[in-house]
Computed example of a mutant assay.
Amino acid sequence: MECNIKNWTLMKWIRLVLGAALLIEGLRAHDVWIGVMGGFLLVMTLANVGCCSMGACSTPRRNTSGKRNENIDYEELK
Results as ranks from 00 to 15, higher is better:
Met1Lys: 08
Met1Val: 12
Glu2Met: 06
Asn4His: 13
Lys6Ser: 14
Asn7His: 11
Trp8Pro: 01
Thr9Lys: 14
Thr9Met: 09
Thr9Trp: 07
Thr9Val: 12
Thr9Arg: 14
Leu10Met: 07
Trp13Pro: 02
Trp13Lys: 10
Ile14Lys: 12
Ile14Gln: 10
Ile14Pro: 04
Arg15Gly: 03
Leu16Tyr: 01
Val17Thr: 15
Leu18Thr: 14
Ala20Phe: 01
Ala20Asn: 00
Ala21Pro: 03
Ala21Met: 09
Leu22Ser: 00
Leu22Phe: 13
Leu23Asn: 00
Ile24His: 02
Gly26Thr: 06
Gly26Ser: 06
Leu27Ala: 11
Asp31Ser: 13
Val32Gly: 09
Trp33Ile: 15
Trp33Pro: 04
Ile34Gln: 05
Gly35Asn: 05
Gly35Tyr: 03
Val36Glu: 08
Val36Tyr: 11
Val36Trp: 10
Val36Asn: 07
Met37Asp: 05
Gly38Val: 03
Phe40Cys: 11
Leu41His: 00
Leu41Gln: 00
Leu42Ala: 02
Leu46Asp: 01
Val49His: 06
Gly50Arg: 01
Cys52Thr: 03
Gly55His: 10
Ala56Gln: 07
Ala56Ile: 05
Ala56Gly: 01
Cys57Val: 05
Cys57Phe: 02
Cys57Asn: 07
Ser58Arg: 14
Ser58Leu: 13
Thr59Trp: 04
Pro60Ser: 12
Pro60Ala: 10
Pro60Ile: 10
Pro60His: 13
Pro60Trp: 08
Pro60Tyr: 10
Arg61Phe: 08
Arg61Thr: 14
Arg62Ala: 10
Arg62Leu: 11
Asn63Cys: 14
Asn63Asp: 15
Thr64Met: 05
Glu70Arg: 14
Glu70Pro: 06
Glu70Ala: 06
Ile72Lys: 12
Asp73Gly: 00
Tyr74Gly: 02
Glu76Cys: 03
Glu76Arg: 07
Lys78Asn: 10
Lys78Phe: 09
